[in-house]
């Protein structure tokens, strides 16, 4: 049984198609990268999985359970962790409190157990020395790490990472990629949207390319990147019907 299974998921905002018959499975502790041009529906796909957006059609199963019956808080508790492209920390709380809310609500832990998990999730992203700072005072890199820590503190089985490497220097990207690879080897499945393709190739074992809400390529990362469909897409080809021309 797959950990996460999407079947025929479709979503339109008025005339804008952000998802059309999206079908894929994610196995436990695997990592999928998602690429595609702006407006391809990548972030909307995360919204659909995490519960911010209700799809028009299709089914989503997580560990065999119907995910669409749950609201986003229940999905977080079930094991879906998500980070936002632009980090959204609780600015007026400390870094530790940010992780603590997630550990107590998302992972349903109490007292010492929740403190331990919150601290551990900061430790894993290298943020523990900033634990008592207000989250609003963090730099971009640290905000991205906090975004990751907060998602980790919910004890996720799958992590949805939305352009977590965007806006960082090469060195910072490498540090973050190392953290993510470690998470994967700890058994957390990863779905990672990224424009910094180099960061993806070091980590994921499968790549999906989205365009205009459709999956246009899915498979081995190198093969997907070198496929005609994807090359055309990035070189400015048009999507017509089922394929890229």
């Amino acid at each position: 049984m797959s950990l996460l299974q999407l079947e025929g998921v479709s979503k339109k905002f008025g005339q804008v198609v952000v998802g059309e018959q999206i079908t894929f499975q994610l196995e436990e502790a695997r990592a999928i990268g998602i690429v595609g041009p702006n407006g391809a529906g990548k972030t909307s796909l995360f919204g659909i999985i995490s519960g911010d957006i209700r799809p028009d059609a299709g089914t989503i199963h997580f560990e065999g359970n119907d995910l669409l019956k749950l609201n986003s808080a229940q999905r977080a508790r079930a094991g879906i962790g998500r980070t936002y492209q632009v980090p959204r920390p609780f600015e007026h709380m400390t870094v530790f409190e940010n992780a603590l809310v997630a550990a107590q609500q998302g992972a349903r832990l109490r007292s010492q157990h929740s403190y331990d998990l919150a601290y551990d999730s900061l430790e894993r992203t290298g943020l523990s020395e900033f634990a008592n700072q207000p989250a609003g005072s963090l730099t971009l890199l640290h905000r991205k790490r906090l975004e990751l820590s907060r998602a980790l503190a919910t004890s996720p089985r799958v992590l949805l990472l939305d352009e977590i490497a965007g806006g960082l220097t090469d060195l910072e990207v490498n540090e973050l990629t190392a953290i993510i690879r470690q998470l994967q080897s700890d058994g957390i499945a990863i779905v990672w949207i990224e424009h910094v393709v180099r960061a993806l190739l070091n980590t994921v074992d499968r790549l999906i390319c989205l365009a205009a809400g459709k999956i246009v390529a899915d498979g081995d990362p190198q093969e997907v990147l070198s496929s005609a469909a994807v090359r055309e897409l990035y070189l400015g080809g048009k999507v017509v019907g089922e394929s890229v021309q």
């Binding site: 995490s50 519960g51 911010d52 609201n71 986003s72 808080a73 977080a76 508790r77 962790g81 998500r82 936002y84 959204r88 920390p89 609780f90 809310v101 997630a102 609500q105 998302g106 992972a107 349903r108 907060r150 998602a151 503190a153 919910t154």
Partner: peptide, 8 residues
Amino acid sequence: EAAQLSGT
């Protein structure tokens, strides 16, 4: 929204 994602 971020609070929801943290399980609240």
